[in-house]
Amino acid sequence: MVQTRTDRSGPLLSPDFLTKLDQLELVSRKIFAGKLRGERISKRRGESVEFADYRNYVVGDDLRFLDWNIFARLEKLFIKLFLQEEDLHVSVLLDVSKSMDWGQPHKGLYARRVAAAIAYIGLVNFDRVSLYTYANGLAGELAGVRGRRLMFKVIEFLSGAEYSGTSNLAATGKQFALRHPQPGIVLVISDFFEKGGYEEGLRYLLGRNYDLYVVQVLSPEEMEPSLVGDLKLTDVEDEDTAEVTVTRALLNRYKINLRAYCERLKDYCTRRGVSYLFTGTEVPFDQIVLSYFRQRGLVK
């Protein structure tokens, strides 16, 4: 359907929107340890200025952290423990299978914009941002960028993503989990039309205890199909065909099935502590980022 493939490219983020995003930062419900010290407090005791606790001095401790005031009063050696400030790993898994190259407004563009916004927020807050595109498996990778000045790389990566292949979340989740042992925020943006099922892929991600966010993006054509007559429907991903005679009953059945599918995904996520967010591409994406993500606690 040619018309639904149009308007697939466009500016990912506008300057105004970026200004708004400057105010936000990503919040993880779990505070994760990073490799580098970042701007956020870790559960690990570290070298930040925020005091956490005392403990007895043992040989070998850094003498710089002895609390001399306590020693003066009690003549016992105590080590001051501080909260470690850590950087946050923010990973975005962006579906670039052919089914994302669809819709008016375009599903893929919408997903890339969401990914860019999340990445920007992370970069601004010196989080470690990794972007992955996936289809049959992980396809493209922009790993470990930090700092606002690398935003151009993010834009470049997202703009260069090609739509191809069928989406296979199971393979993707396995690869990502193996390659990405550090905890952090993982955002999966997809339509979740997985012929092999999304459960296995999500299970791989859940196994690493990531702070997992699932964003399901659907175009209006998928939610309210405007098909009529005797049709041979071809799957753009795997060329699978389905012959249908579109009738009122069939359309109703489709919508019921779609609603049930989304409900099942949401149910699956909620049961496992995964934040699920459904959006249609007709919803302005800045609204998603500025209000929906905030409501879900992803940004503040």
Binding site: F193, E222, L227, T234, V236, E243, V244
Partner: peptide, 26 residues
């Protein structure tokens, strides 16, 4: 016999397949 149908691409036949399972036109 099957009808000679108009070919229309869709993002995924996943849900269609489920919807037409009852109709068994495939």
């Amino acid at each position: 016999l099957k009808l000679k149908r108009v070919v229309r691409p869709v993002p995924s036949t996943l849900l269609w397949r489920r919807a037409i399972e009852d109709l068994r036109v495939n």
